[in-house]
Computed example of a mutant assay.
Amino acid sequence: MHLPPLDIFSCSESTSLYSTVTSTLPLPTASATSRSAATSTLTAIQNLIQDVIQSSNSNSQPTERLEGQFHHVQLAKLANGDALMLKYPSSFSIRSLRHEVQSLETEYRTLLTLQEYTQLPVPEIVDYDSTGYSFGSPFLLTAHRPGIRLSEALPYISATEKKSIDRVLGYTICALASLSSSQFGPITQVFERSGSASWREAFLTLFESALRDAEDMLITLPYEFLRRCIDQHIHSLDYITEPKLVALDICNPEKVLVDENTKQVTCLLGLSNVIWGDPLMNDAIANGNDDFRQGYQSLFPEQEGDHVRQSIYAVYRAVVQIVTHHYRPHSGIDELDARRSMAHALNELAL
């Protein structure tokens, strides 16, 4: 299915759901100012929800804060039993990588696209405001889908249930890759008609942005060697002539929700890092097992240059992980593991 940029939408986002915080709001006890600010935030959230829902059932209970690395995520339970998820930017003191700057809008546009053109289990949009006028900050409000993180459920999942989940995730990549556009690059740029004409150009822009993020933090990396190595193999990207929708984090176990009883996938949350490009960019394809590949390769069999492109993308992902670790040291990323992955991918390209 071919999607023309912009024409899909009539109107105008880095973190998914993590573990639940036991307090209803972050209320530091050491500061009366902090308590006052938290109370003000709670009031603002309740007012926002009442304005959006405009219903007698909209009276919300105290909101529950869910952990997020790049955005605040609040769970608001309504009087009628429904629940809403509110996502808005964290403190401006948290530095963002270049590809994260528009992550809230990325998630919004991706959700619109998937809800219109697929049957994938994603959150339903309730409201979105990119200006911050009504709330004091840009926000995305979605309906809450029940479930537990796949990463939490894995110890209790049978082999049969795991096979089923892997196949579903493989089919998910297929469903995304069945959508195409006329330009390459981040979804926000493409829908503004400012994407790239070639995948080579779009990927080099992404890669250079990651390297510049690293240079900004004075991170020790072999910058010129990385640039030279990618440049030597960049011609392999010219095999990709049609932009496909790629959600880079959609198979991350932290961002996949499953039913606690049936262990079936109930929601996909990794939608804030999305591009139009090569589906092989998703590391789940490189690291997926036979069941995952059964779902993916049913529509997209292997083709020439796959191995080289996967190594190029592995270098990119490793650089992004290293940079993210330095920007946000508590993100749970193992820098040494990322550096080993980068070295392995570079060795593969040298063969």
Rank of each mutant, 00 (worst) to 15 (best):
I240L: 06
I173E: 14
F292M: 05
L42S: 14
S93H: 11
A350N: 13
L211N: 06
T29Q: 11
K255I: 00
S10I: 13
A214N: 02
A286S: 12
Q297C: 10
F191D: 15
V265G: 05
L3W: 05
S60L: 11
F225P: 00
E116F: 01
V168G: 00
E13M: 08
S164A: 15
A338M: 02
Q297M: 12
R145F: 03
G136R: 09
V274H: 01
E100S: 07
H325T: 13
S103W: 01
L97M: 15
S134W: 05
E260L: 05
I148R: 10
H99K: 09
E152N: 11
A318K: 09
T188C: 15
L66Q: 11
L78K: 02
N289Q: 02
M1L: 12
S341R: 14
E105S: 05
I250G: 02
E260H: 06
T110K: 01
G81P: 08
L111C: 04
R293L: 15
I45K: 01
R228G: 11
R339I: 09
W276C: 04
L268N: 07
R145V: 14
S137R: 13
I230G: 02
G147Q: 02
A83V: 02
T266W: 01
D216A: 09
H330Y: 08
S196W: 06
T43K: 08
I45Q: 03
V190Q: 05
Q232H: 12
V308M: 12
L351H: 11
L221V: 07
N80D: 15
N47Q: 13
N289D: 15
L120I: 01
C251A: 13
E107P: 01
S103F: 00
L27T: 12
I322D: 06
S180E: 13
L349D: 13
A30C: 03
A79I: 06
D337S: 14
E100W: 04
A38K: 04
Q74C: 06
S181Q: 06
L336W: 05
F300A: 03
D231K: 07
Y88G: 06
H307W: 04
D334H: 06
T241D: 09
G136P: 10
T220M: 07
